[in-house]
Simulated assay, not measured.
Amino acid sequence: MTVASVSWNQIVDFSDYGALLSLSWKALVAGAVLGVLGGLVSVFVMMRDLPFAVHGVSELSFAGAAGFLLAGANVVAGSLTGSLVAALLIGSLGARARDRNSVIGVLMPFGLGLGVLFLSLYSGRTANKFGLLVGQIAAVNSAHLAAVVITSAVVLAGLAVVWRPLTFASTDPELASARGVPVRLLSPLFMLLLGLTVAISVQAVGALLVLTILVTPAAAAMRVSSSPVLVPVLAVVFAVVSMVGGILLELGSASLPITPYVTTISFAIYAACRGIGRLREYRSSSTRLSTT
């Protein structure tokens, strides 16, 4: 297909939108749940400087899902297996940032290579292969929705328990350790929660989209606020708007995946927040100059 032959209706087509919307409530619920979960987890991903780790875990999650797909087993279980293995390895071996990045740098190409190998050997539907990369959230069924909700509830419960000590350990690990906070234990524990989040996110939005809901929301929120209360709230709002908005737009296209819609909305939010942050910095510097 050439660029000239691409029809606008392939990108936006709302002719049967009402019927599609009524059939897609499961996808919208899954998107909203993943938005809430991704927004909260992204706060600690940014605080602990783990965007690279998210990508590394997603590669192993992709490899696990592809391997189970090839074996005819449950793809969700494969994704969970790959994510948890990667999360535990990164959490236990990468105590320091340099060590962590080295481990991730080794795991990423290994996981991606395994995933590509498994998909090359798989002779089933092409849509199954493509879905592991860009997601199939519009086709979420009841079993998958239940897995998303249950896993999200587990992760949210874990975050509720460790939120305060994890925040302390993420902002000042040395002082937190001196105050008796189990900093060494919190690192693998958070990586375990991150692994669960990545696993269910990969199944819904694909390995290529995980960074959009686990990094960008908090990155955008931190450009406009430093409040420990407002940043998580804004991150959740940004993630939910990106996910639900992307699904609503994707329903208007029968031939395009959700990826470009969610990433575009997410990037637009980040760009707007970055612009607001720059404007505030400029006004603040101008005010200081005028008073001196």
Rank of each mutant, 00 (worst) to 15 (best):
V85M: 08
V103H: 01
G94N: 12
A86D: 10
A73D: 00
S92W: 13
G78N: 09
G94M: 13
A97R: 15
S79G: 15
L107V: 12
A95R: 15
S79H: 03
A73I: 00
S123L: 09
L119N: 07
G124Q: 08
Y122I: 09
G82R: 13
A97E: 15
V76W: 05
D99H: 15
N101R: 05
L89E: 09
L114W: 03
A87S: 14
T81Y: 12
L114T: 00
S102D: 03
R98C: 01
A77T: 04
G113E: 07
R100S: 09
G113Y: 10
G94P: 12
G124I: 08
I90H: 08
F110I: 15
L119G: 05
T81V: 14
G78Q: 08
S83F: 03
S79T: 06
G115A: 03
S120T: 13
V116S: 11
G113P: 02
T81Q: 04
I90G: 02
Y122S: 07
L114A: 02
L117H: 01
R98T: 15
L121H: 10
N101P: 00
A97K: 15
V116C: 07
G78K: 08
P109Q: 05
G82T: 14
L88S: 11
P109A: 06
L84E: 13
M108S: 12
S79E: 09
S123Q: 14
